[in-house]
Design a protein around this nucleic acid. Sequence first.
RNA 1: CGGGAAUUAGCUCAGCUUGGUAGAGCGCUCGCUUUGGGAGCGAGAAGUCGCAGGUUCAAAUCCUGUAUUCCCGACCA
Length: 597
Amino acid sequence: MIDRLSSLFVRTLREDPADAEVASHRLLVRAGYIRRQAPGIFAWLPLGLRVKNKVETIIREEMARAGAQEMSFPGLLPAETYEATGRLNDFGDSMFRLEDRKGAPMVLAPTHEEAFTVVVKDLYSSYKDLPLTIYQIQDKFRDEARPRAGLLRGRQFTMKDAYSFDVDDEGLAESYQRQRDAYERIFQRLGLEYVIVDAQAGAMGGSKSEEFLHATEVGEDTFVQSPGGYAANVEAYVSTQAPARDFSADAAIETFRTPGSTTIATLVDAANREVPRERPWAAVDTLKHVVLAVVDHEGNREVIVVGVEGDRDADLGRIEAAFTPREVEMATEEDLKAYPQLVPGYIGPWLDGRQVLGKDQEWGIPYYLDARIGEGSTWISGANAADTHLHSLVIGRDVVPDARIEAADVRDGDPAPDGSGPVTTKRGTEIGHVFQLGRKYAEALDLRVLDKNGKLVVVTMGSYGIGVTRDLALVAEQNHDDRGLIWPEAVAPYDVHVIATGKGEVPLQVAEQLAAEAEAAGLEVLLDDRPKESPGVKFGDAELIGVPWILIAGRNAADGTVELWNRRTNERNQVAVTEAVAALLAAREVSLEAAGK
RNA sequence: CGGGAAUUAGCUCAGCUUGGUAGAGCGCUCGCUUUGGGAGCGAGAAGUCGCAGGUUCAAAUCCUGUAUUCCCGACCA
């Protein structure tokens, strides 16, 4: 197959588009792969679509190998699809909603668990039909609050979503493993570096979940890694509680004046001024109390107080994991009005000789401590009165929390829970997610089959997603230089880019001949046959477009010599015209082998 | 949802401080030249200056509002 630049629908841009920040976005637009239609919504030009199709082909091949069957659901669904599972509310504003002409509520599907579950329920009713894994590659719609970074966080994006159905937990574990293995192969073939992290989040537990993350500066997720092999999404990181301390000889609580000290910094200053001690007080000696609201699907709000070490921030994402499926947000002024006892800047668990925070305590406000905080530890804390704090508050002596939860942010140097060393935090982006859903959807939608004994059992499910277009963008992100894209062979829009340049008709004739030979050898060819573009333009476009191999028929073509150019290594070799395609095939073979390992 | 920046030709931007009826580079069209690093000369097409009000003899420029886009944050107790 040969496509010609003289007629291909593409226009490269000399300058970076003003609305693109990250490299993948900039280069995909500049090189003529995609065009923005609206924030987070892109059109695919011929070059882009070729790459996208190659990514999808790799996924299809690996899904087939894993025994998954492809089908396709509509993106437009009746809203009621999501009602039984409560997800119409869960998704909230991030679901695109519309009405048909009769006024029936419709949505653009953000994901398809319900639809897949229902179709299996409609067609299957026996354990003999299971296990089953089905999938689709299809566009999803999510009305993101802030689409970002081009393809990396879009509002319409292509996703491969697979769903497994099993009669028992062992079956689910096997189906899960098959998809997980397939994902490893897919990312290896895409040449995308990845880390598999534990994403099992919070107190709900039970169902296993792992994320495939690609470490990148432009990522929006944070994960931690230890030298000993521990890896977890920051929301799933489990911190280590400080060892218990003997407090039998500790002094009693004492309050002190802290006018205007509503921040940790001013509080530390006030403490060193009012109640100085040998080792100066520091932020780490203070216990800071955050007022939060835990909100359920119906919008019911429960106000809670969470204490974390003063030198750390509360991490709402981590805290939320402990309350899933409810959401956690900062308390609003409305929330605070209901509890006038809570004096902003001076909140604490203790007042006048007794604990006041806690479900069963006087104020009835649930009280949680960060999981790092040990028994017998001693703290400066708010004293629940304006301009007053207290010190020598001892956990386990003066106050007892309702529970300890993962609340504080995670930092470089914090210990991995499995003893494998200090973790470092890194930025990454989720490129795939495998999840043992268990029976949640099957129960909500009543997907049950008869087992061997003729008894109805609820089916157990898994769901497995890969962000096709996001992964494509990350491949671009990981494979470029300041001149343009550098596609890996596996997803490049073409196998070779043949350039005709130079005086006379010979270069073009030679280029045509090389293109025909390459095509005959089974390669996909992009031929730059534009008659009037200067060499600089052609070389520049070739570098921008990023096909991994470039063949130049130029000034030496008349002498029977052309140039083979490796876009990635920038290595250029003069080869005889008669041997050029053979040399290309050989060099490509070496490169493919290196990528395959 | 909060904060910041931007909005002028297809693209990237200048002009606004100090109001006087619109510019550059790239791209595009035509002609000639050029052909190994975004080439040269000449000629040309192309913009209701985001939108709506206001001030003024006169507004891209000053004022008010509004929309859109991009970036940062979604936390500071």
